[in-house]
Design a protein around this nucleic acid. Structure first.
Lengths: 233, 233
DNA sequence: TCATAGTGTTTCGTATACGATTTCGTACTC
DNA sequence: GAGTACGAAATCGTATACGAAACACTATGA
């Protein structure tokens, strides 16, 4: 079972409310690329597609707006929010902070079994480096980190981490597609992170390591895409 | 003008949409305590009070739910979410992290004028220590920190900080009411923080200082309320 | 030819209406 | 007397309908 904590992506359709259904359906279409960035989300059309009225759809859209997956403008409508590199930067930076914190808070609660599981995933990733598949690698990457932060006792922080991953998934940059070289380092850093946790390192050290691990990916992306155009400024 | 960047708390009623009006109105009532925690928010009643239909009210409630101000249960209704000490802990901890990060990112962009402004606010706070008024002190406290983090270039992080402050405002614990002793230290730490920023300290140092400043408040609260019952984990 | 005003279409925003679900009270039975 | 079942009231969820705002297009005048 390689896809672990996909959080809210309940595939088995949304249960009760139509709002929920609409939410799940639209979100799925965004993540899988059916609605690509910039796509104009027209309430009536979506409502018809899903066989519901516009009211639940409207609510779903607003929820997605709150998550940052779509942008909404009064009396104009909603569009799938873009791959704007700036957005990517902001999201990654935010995630580096909250994920770092979540991992540090989680660390004391990570047992040997968890470490073993993470290590197994990382082994898969290393193997995956041969015939490199960015999508699969990214999925495994999420699995790996899920093990590390899912024990975070603070639900707010955990929620923020999930949102960050969701956003990244939606603007499916899949980073490693652009910076395949980063994949190698990433796997190594994973192992270092695990050893840090095993050895019972201080939360601060773990937090910094986790944060830098992500920052490094971001930096690699920035260096690659355009050498510094929107870096520090 | 003592109340500065109250972010979303546009007092001049919400302009355009009824949803916005409803949102602002309900939120105001929660923050000012008209709707105290546990209060049952009935759509029809609120709609009538505001002179609108239930649809915009519904949307407003859902927004408030996303912010964590109310809890919503399907087919049952919404209630103002509680002062649950655990929630307070989570919120403060989350805020310590995101606010620390925001302050650090903001630091390089803070000019002499900003520092002066912050120092003025802090002076007011120190003065306020005489005939101590927790509410006023808390308001000034927010003003002070606003100066420090409002320049944060990452809008996502900034938004998270605002949400944190909003939540604290809603569960109006006003901390300093419970731990008046903390107020003194707080003012001193503010000055230290300012000097750190003025001297161009490293972002990491600033981040840690800002984070610890908040953690310390939380710890003081915990030590006070019940000596360690829900401390470490 | 370009700028501007007017008109028409699209799409959102909100009100009203009705069906669905939960909850609470009451009566009945064991 | 206690527990359960039935029914009524309250409240939410969603559909439909209509008004309002924004946008695109066209025609007219300078």
């Amino acid at each position: 079972m390689t896809e672990t904590a996909k959080a809210a992506a309940t595939p088995a359709a949304a249960s009760g409310s139509k709002s929920e259904q609409a939410y799940t359906a639209v979100k799925a279409r965004i993540v899988d690329g059916t609605y690509s960035p910039g796509y104009r989300l027209v309430l009536a059309k979506i409502a018809e597609d899903l066989g519901v009225s516009v009211v639940p759809v409207r609510e779903a859209i607003r929820r997605l707006e709150a998550e940052g997956l779509v942008k909404f403008e009064r009396n104009v409508g909603a569009t799938v929010s873009g791959i704007d590199p700036t957005e990517y930067l902001y999201t990654m930076q935010t995630l580096s902070i909250v994920e770092g914190a979540a991992t540090a808070l989680s660390a004391p609660l990570i047992g040997a079994a968890d470490v073993a599981r993470a290590r197994a995933v990382n082994a898969e990733m290393r193997e995956c480096l041969q015939h490199f598949d960015p999508v699969r690698f990214t999925a495994l990457n999420q699995d790996f980190h899920s093990v590390l932060f899912e024990h975070c006792p603070n639900p707010h922080i955990l929620d923020l981490v999930h949102r960050g991953w969701n956003r990244l998934a939606s603007l499916r940059s899949s980073t490693f597609r652009f910076v395949p070289g980063r994949a190698h380092e990433s796997v190594d850093e994973h192992e270092a992170l695990l050893q840090l946790i095993e050895s019972g390192a201080s939360p601060d050290d773990i937090e910094m390591a986790a944060r830098r691990h992500r920052s490094a990916t971001l930096d690699a992306y920035l260096a690659q895409s355009n050498a510094g155009s929107l870096s520090a400024h």
